[in-house]
Design a binder for these strands. Structure first.
Lengths: 209, 209
DNA sequence: CGTCTATTTGAATGTACTCAAAAGCGGTGG
DNA sequence: CCACCGCTTTTGAGTACATTCAAATAGACG
């Protein structure tokens, strides 16, 4: 529950992420200030980072590793909202900003290094470093657009097409994420994804020798 | 294509929207500056405001009326991304910020009055009036959270439950939006929604046994 | 190696879809 | 005022895709 803190300096994943998104360099002073506000943490495999129903006023930028954000429905089924990889912001944005109980769960899929920032420090960063605020606005705008597109695609395409366009966009996803979670992201059952893959491969995956 | 401009002063829908969201009052000077950046426009019924594939660097705050944002898939079917009512921001956020062709279409459902702002003026507003920037960040954060929730709900619930929770949240929606568009929002065909409604109406809320 | 989890496969079921047509509703003009 | 027209909603019959339940197989890890 309480991940060990790391003493090592903040990786420049954060700085690189900001500079590439706002197309500007940060001054050394700005980088230093930001580094002081972020705290690197290390998590293991399948560690729960945020739990639905509990307040979490920390946001995380993934330095390395992978995570998934999900909800659990009345039947106990997992539904993946988002996978996170290097450079992704994860956490429960609702709880982070409102201070109310989180809507989603966040877990690591593999050992991961996260750059964490508390809400108060986040607000400070926005005030002290305007470039950071700009960076955040762009980040969240992109996230919003992405989720709208996902809604649109979810309607237009059947599961097979959704799977194909997913692995087209993120070819390494199947190798980093178990298949049943990919299914939960696509909104189908693991069995259905298995059948879709079988159909796409044209023959039983296993019996070719 | 080119809606008539209105000479009347900007309604205080904008000011009220900002003040209620940031929990602060605007000064007269701030209100005045904002009013100068927004241009009210009037559109009729079923007027196209933004078209997929065309750049639209204007955003709209609905003063009165209703809109819908949608995509059209390969089969020519309409899929509703969002309905807009009084106080909602509408437009293609992707095109607005990136300057690239819009991903979505925007149409009025009934005659509507919109407060429009061009991208350049939007940027000015963010710089000149920090409260506006805060307001915008909260607005877009809420939009993002809402779309994530919609994705989550879309998975967990079947069409009947999605319909029920929709009319629970927005009871007046069926009276303002044609049923086939409600269906397109729920991700089902009009025939299916008709059957769902029939089933729900045919079944008493509480069966006497 | 054995255990646990993940994936695959089979068979029956169900929900929403397609295609087709009828009925309802609202507005307009004769 | 009524007849007609276009659009929306309803209904019917057959179909497709994904689900559920159940079980076998494959893989990962200690």
């Amino acid at each position: 529950m309480k991940p060990p803190q790391i003493k090592a300096p903040v990786a420049n994943t954060l700085i690189r992420s900001i500079e590439s998104k706002i197309h500007q360099k940060l001054t050394d002073s700005e980088s230093l200030s930001l580094n002081q506000l972020f705290l690197p943490i290390q998590v293991g495999r399948k560690d729960r980072i945020v739990s639905e129903g509990k307040v979490c006023r920390t946001a995380y930028l993934i330095d390395s590793g992978a995570t998934h954000t999900f909800v659990i429905d009345n039947n106990g089924s997992v539904h993946t909202i988002q996978f996170g990889f290097e450079g992704y912001w994860v956490g429960d944005i609702y709880s982070f900003f409102s201070g109310k109980p989180a809507l989603f769960n966040l877990e690591s899929l593999e050992p991961a290094r996260l750059l964490s920032i508390k809400h108060d420090d986040f607000e400070k960063a926005c005030v002290q470093i305007p470039k950071f605020e700009t960076y955040w606005r762009k980040t969240i705008q992109n996230g919003y657009i992405g989720s709208l597109l996902r809604i649109a695609k979810g309607f237009s395409d059947d599961a097979e097409h959704r799977y194909l366009s997913l692995i087209l966009q993120q070819p390494d996803l199947p190798s980093r994420v178990p298949q049943y979670l990919v299914a939960s992201y696509l909104g189908i059952r693991p069995e259905s994804l298995s059948r879709i893959r079988k159909k796409l491969s044209g023959r039983p995956v296993r019996k070719i020798s």
